[in-house]
Simulated scan of single mutants.
Amino acid sequence: MSLAKIIEEIKSKHDETGVLTIHLNTDASSGNLSNGEWKIHLKNGLKELKEDVKDKPSELKALKKLQDKVETEIAVHQREMRKGFILIASADGELWRARVLQVPVTTSFHWGKTAETQQIEALEQQFPETALVVVQQAKVTFIETSLGIIRDTKKYSWDVESENWVDPEEAAQSLARGGGKDEFQHRFEENQHRWYKSLAAQLEKEVKDRGLEGMYLIGSKESVSELESHMNSGKLKGVITKNLGSKPEHEILNEVFETLI
Rank of each mutant, 00 (worst) to 15 (best):
I149C: 13
M215A: 04
E206K: 13
K64R: 12
F109V: 09
G211I: 08
P128I: 00
G245C: 08
H230Y: 12
V105T: 09
S246G: 09
G245K: 11
K113Q: 12
E144M: 14
K197S: 13
R151Q: 11
L20A: 06
W165Q: 08
A176H: 12
A91K: 01
E124S: 12
L253V: 08
Q119A: 09
G214T: 07
N232K: 10
Q185Y: 04
V53I: 13
H23M: 11
L147C: 10
N164F: 03
G18Y: 10
E249Y: 01
E206M: 12
Q202I: 03
P248R: 11
A62T: 13
R79T: 02
R82F: 04
I218E: 06
K65V: 11
S198V: 04
G180M: 12
V105D: 06
K69N: 09
L46T: 05
S29L: 01
Q202W: 03
N254D: 11
G214N: 11
S29Q: 15
A89Q: 15
A171N: 06
V256R: 01
G178V: 04
A138W: 11
H110F: 14
R82Y: 03
S2N: 15
H41G: 02
G36D: 09
E255Q: 14
D167E: 14
P128K: 00
G148S: 08
M215H: 11
E163K: 02
E170C: 01
K54W: 05
L147M: 15
G179M: 11
E228H: 14
R187F: 03
Q126V: 01
T259L: 09
L217F: 14
W158L: 04
E206T: 12
I22N: 04
S90K: 05
Q173M: 13
W111S: 06
K54I: 13
V53L: 13
L20E: 03
N243W: 09
L24E: 04
T145W: 03
K181M: 11
V105R: 01
K237C: 05
K11W: 03
A75R: 14
L244C: 10
N44Q: 07
G180D: 10
K11D: 13
E71L: 15
I6F: 00
V256M: 13
G234N: 15
A138R: 14
H41S: 07
L123K: 07
N44G: 05
L66K: 06
I143H: 07
K181F: 03
V160W: 00
Y196N: 08
A122F: 05
A138D: 15
S157N: 08
E189P: 00
S162M: 05
E124K: 14
K65M: 06
V53D: 11
K181W: 10
R187I: 00
L199K: 03
